[in-house]
Simulated assay, not measured.
Amino acid sequence: MTTTSPIPFTPAAPGSADAGSTGTGPSGRRAAVVAAGLALALAGCGGGADEPSGESGSDNGDGLTAITVGVQPFAELAPLYIAQERGLFEEHGLEVTVQPASQGAELITAMVAGELPIVYSNYFSLLTAADQGLPVRVFRENDRPGVQGLYVMPDSDITDPEDFEGASIAVSGLGNVMEITSRAVLEHHGVDLDSIEFVELAPPTMLQALEQGQVDAAWLVEPFATLGQSEQDVRMVVSAFEGPSQDSPVAGWATTADVAESDPEMLAAFSAAIDEAMAIVHDEPDAVAEIIPTYTEMTPELAASLGPVGYAQGNDLADLSIVNDLLLRYDIISAPVDLDSLIVDVG
């Protein structure tokens, strides 16, 4: 079984190139998203002898198909690590290596380039990539709404959603699930969206940026919400999933059209192992608290106090129409994404 080292929560130096970028108005946001899409396309369409083959997996010599999957350091990934620890992937003929990244865009880039056959990603980024013509596919749900929301420091003047007028909010990417759900929720509460500044930061850096006053609020996901509540006494002002975003799916497992066509058996095996891990998460809550400290720096005690995570027991991707609607509402995509082409049924 492959193991991974804990992912360090090391913030970027303030003012460095990695410390964050901002976007405010629709034109700036759209430009940022298009630029990201162009970067993905360039990464996936390079030529020459070093071009990735796009091969989804290889035999490891023991009769198992070796694959590498890309993830982020989120509590939502507990089922993946449980499947790895308990040998569920091996039972389905796979040897899985986990490759962490601090930003989701890095994972989609690597996937489209043929370097990773499977990645974990939020659906907003995946539908945006599909809108730009990139060959992304979705085949398995992973998580639904949980404790994600807009958090502030305990002494912040922001106490109600309406108080976000003129605020700066940390999100992991412009045009992704964090920015779009923030916009939907704040608009639902009557906030002037043109007054909001969205600051792009990697999730592990958000708590320090919040504490140092670099941003007024941050869109936090587990384990960072619980870490912030424990160490800095941050508080959630409003959930990221209410009003127009209330029933929106959040994130799942993606691949490329080439892999979906050439190796559906591998995707089915991966999905079956995740199905079994989801059942363990449901039946054995302590398993989540035990596994999270193995791939993050969270202590077992803190992991045991995590807020509820919306692990997807089933695999119903029909609600991606909500993501389509929100992306259209905020001018991130120009037309609805064809969900029949995007979604791959692996059985």
Rank of each mutant, 00 (worst) to 15 (best):
D283S: 04
A303K: 13
V250M: 15
A218I: 08
E290K: 07
E242C: 04
T296L: 14
G228H: 08
D233T: 10
E284Q: 02
A279Q: 12
M236D: 10
D286C: 06
V309Q: 11
P300T: 06
V221N: 15
P204M: 09
P249G: 09
V259R: 09
Q212G: 01
V281K: 00
I291E: 06
D233S: 12
V309W: 02
I274Y: 01
L306S: 08
W253P: 04
A303I: 10
P244I: 08
M278W: 06
V221Y: 13
T299N: 05
A218R: 05
E276T: 03
L220M: 13
D233V: 07
W219N: 14
D216L: 01
Y311A: 02
P223M: 07
D283M: 01
A218E: 12
A240N: 11
D283Y: 02
A254D: 12
A303E: 02
I292C: 07
G228N: 08
F270D: 00
A254H: 14
T205I: 08
Y295A: 05
M278P: 03
W253D: 09
Q214N: 10
T299S: 14
A217T: 04
P293S: 03
I291S: 00
G252R: 07
T294S: 10
A277E: 02
L207V: 03
A277Y: 03
P308V: 00
I274R: 02
D283G: 04
F224S: 10
V234S: 11
V250N: 08
D263R: 02
L306V: 14
P223T: 08
L227T: 12
A279E: 14
A269F: 00
A218F: 10
E297W: 10
Q208M: 13
V237P: 05
E265M: 03
V221R: 15
W219M: 15
M236N: 12
V309F: 06
S245T: 05
P300C: 00
L302F: 11
D216G: 04
V250C: 12
E222W: 14
